[in-house]
Write a protein that binds this DNA or RNA. Structure first.
Length: 550
RNA sequence: GGCGGAGUAGCUCAGUGGUAGAGCAGGGGACUCAUAAGCCCUUGGUCGCAAGUUCGACUCUUGCCUCCGCUACCA
């Protein structure tokens, strides 16, 4: 368990900035943002890093086709990412770009350290080269009538390349990796991903290439063939030295974002990362290559890598930009609102495996969970408190059934959230929503209100009862809003306002009291307050027959 | 080819050696505080196929089929 005030550093993979982002790309960023917000609210010293991967021959080519500089090309794409993320309420502590100057220095420093440690050497590389993904091994390409292609990009022709490259001695780290996996059973999660990676390690590791001869759009390789620095007398980097190839560029962003190498104090504070959230397609690079690269530089491996699955469309095909079968996050936000989009995406898509989604499943989930169950619960609670108690906020009771249910719910919710089972955490919290809705029908506050009108001794006991029931319901709404705030950061403060409470956290979840204290039953039991008029939080949507992208 | 996972109600999934569960969707009902929401009840399943072990298997074993993941290789 995370102790109060601990620091928590988490990252997402950086997205390839060659296009507009799809919801399937921002999915992990939304999930990581939720986890980051939870830790900020806990009071942890939290740092959340996400960003974009911007170097590659492919991007340089695309820019050239459009007749613009690579930098202008990626600036535009990054703008699209940032604007979609803003719409989704995503709040990184730093948005890192591999074109950032400090990242340039970090990547070069990592290469120098690997070299100094004897872990990189010159070799020749020959093989099929995919402009999108780099060199592909024989098992990764497919022969077709139109020639050899990479299955992920059927329309992109492969090239057969031979070139002199620097290699990283991954093979030297096999034993240490096996030991690390054994000593840190939670290093890779979920477990079946860990087993897959362990299987990959055990069958023997091969060195991998970390440079490209083709200069241009990339970070200059800092070492010349003679082993000296490739920095020339005129201050330029020798183009003959080539550029750093993808993994010694992209992966490095995680330490750049922690202060490496410019700010040793910051780096000592933030590294090793507590959590990398990544997609299953890059698990090997994060759980095998990356630890070895860090060790080579004398640094620690990250503490935990969470591997999530993909969003699939009906029929099981992976959502992807190249297939054109993806959701535009901006459309989802337009339809469901910012919090609606966050909630539905994370409730509907399991964070530990692939999930089929459709526009209809999103709308159904929104209506069932947000409009009908939770939104309506808040609305009916606030409405009754206004109508029966003149808006004077009733206090929660001590021994009510909801309190009992809540005290069972919170620890489960917390462990699922911190264990990255975000969909399960929401399901747990929503069971409590259901319990609150059932309490309304069991207690029938409207009948209590009638008994009060009739007066007499029955009226007096009804009055106490009404106040206790509505107090428990108000408390339930407060607790759900606070606990669910990482998922619903824009709505949670509105709910507290309707309940007559101030919202003590900043927009990113920082600055307030430790949330676990706030989440104890009746944490603000003695405080008087005036409730606001009810205002629907999640307007019900009509189900459109089929708006699922083809 | 090797290793691993999965095949359970229309959909998404949970589950256990003793004659199957949840949520959503569908149907019905009583109510009315509420976003015609909520609540209660309910229709749906030969638990992939076949054989075996067992008093008894959806749950164990074997074979097969289908799908998926990791990985290898042939051509």
């Amino acid at each position: 368990m995370i102790e109060k005030g601990r620091r928590f550093y988490l990252t997402t993979a950086i997205a390839y900035a060659n296009n507009q982002p799809g919801l399937h790309t921002l999915y992990e960023v939304i999930g990581a943002d939720v986890i980051a917000r939870w830790h900020r609210m806990l009071g942890d010293d939290t740092r959340f890093l996400t960003g974009t991967d911007e170097h590659s021959v492919n991007i340089a080519q695309r820019a050239a086709e459009e007749g613009i500089e690579p930098r202008a090309f990626v600036d535009e794409k990054v703008g699209l990412f940032r604007s979609s993320e803003r719409l989704l309420g995503i709040n990184p502590d730093r948005f890192i770009r591999t074109t950032d100057p400090d990242h340039f220095r970090a990547a070069q420093e990592m290469v120098r350290r690997a070299y100094a440690n004897g872990d990189i050497y010159l070799g020749a590389y020959e093989g099929w080269y995919c402009p999108n993904e780099g060199f592909r091994s024989a098992s990764e390409v497919v022969e077709t009538a139109r020639g050899t292609i990479c299955p992920n990009h059927p329309d992109v022709p492969l090239q057969w390349l031979t070139e002199r490259n620097w290699f990283f001695r991954l093979s030297a780290y096999q034993a240490r990796l096996e030991r690390h996996f054994a000593e840190h059973p939670d290093f890779v999660q979920p477990d079946y991903r860990r087993n897959e990676m362990l299987g990959f390690i055990r069958q023997g590791l091969e060195d991998f290439s970390i440079s490209r001869a083709s200069g241009g759009w990339g970070i200059p390789f800092p070492i010349a063939e003679n082993g000296e620095s490739s920095l020339m007398a005129d201050g330029r980097w020798d183009p003959e030295a080539g550029t750093i190839y993808v993994w010694y560029d992209a992966l490095i962003n995680y330490i750049t974002g922690a202060g490496f190498p410019d700010d040793p104090d910051a780096f000592a504070h933030w590294w090793p990362a507590d959590l990398h959230v990544i997609g299953k397609d890059i698990a090997r690079f994060h759980t095998v290559y990356w630890p070895a690269m860090l060790w080579s530089a004398g640094l620690e491996a990250p503490r935990r890598v969470w591997v999530h699955g993909w969003l699939l469309v009906k029929g099981g095909e992976r959502m992807s930009k190249s297939r054109g079968n993806f959701f535009d996050p901006n459309d989802v936000v337009t339809a469901l609102g910012s919090d609606g989009a966050r909630y539905v995406t994370l409730a509907e898509v399991a964070f530990d495996r692939d999930t089929e989604v459709s526009w209809e499943s999103f709308i159904r989930r929104y209506n069932a969970d947000l409009a009908n169950d939770f939104g309506n619960l808040v609305n009916r609670t606030v409405s009754m408190a206004n109508r029966y108690l003149a808006g004077e906020r009733p206090g929660a009771s001590d021994g009510g059934s909801l309190r009992f249910v809540w005290e069972k719910t919170l620890p489960v919710y917390r462990s699922q959230l911190e264990g990255c089972l975000l969909h399960a955490a929401l399901a747990t919290l929503w069971e409590f929503v259901g319990a609150a809705n059932r309490l309304v029908d069991a207690e029938k506050p409207w009948e209590l209100a009638k008994a009060i009108k009739l007066g007499g001794p029955d009226g007096e006991s009804a009055s106490l009862r009404l106040s206790a029931v509505l107090g428990d319901l108000v408390e339930a709404c407060r607790l759900i809003a606070l606990a669910g705030a990482p998922f619903l950061p824009a709505t949670a403060p509105r709910i507290l306002a309707q309940l007559g409470y101030a919202w003590p956290y900043a927009n990113d979840g920082n600055g307030g009291p430790p949330v676990l204290g706030e989440l104890s039953w009746a944490a603000h039991g003695g405080e008087a307050g005036q409730m606001e008029q009810p205002e629907p939080l999640f307007p019900r949507l009509s189900v459109e027959p089929d708006a699922t992208p083809a």
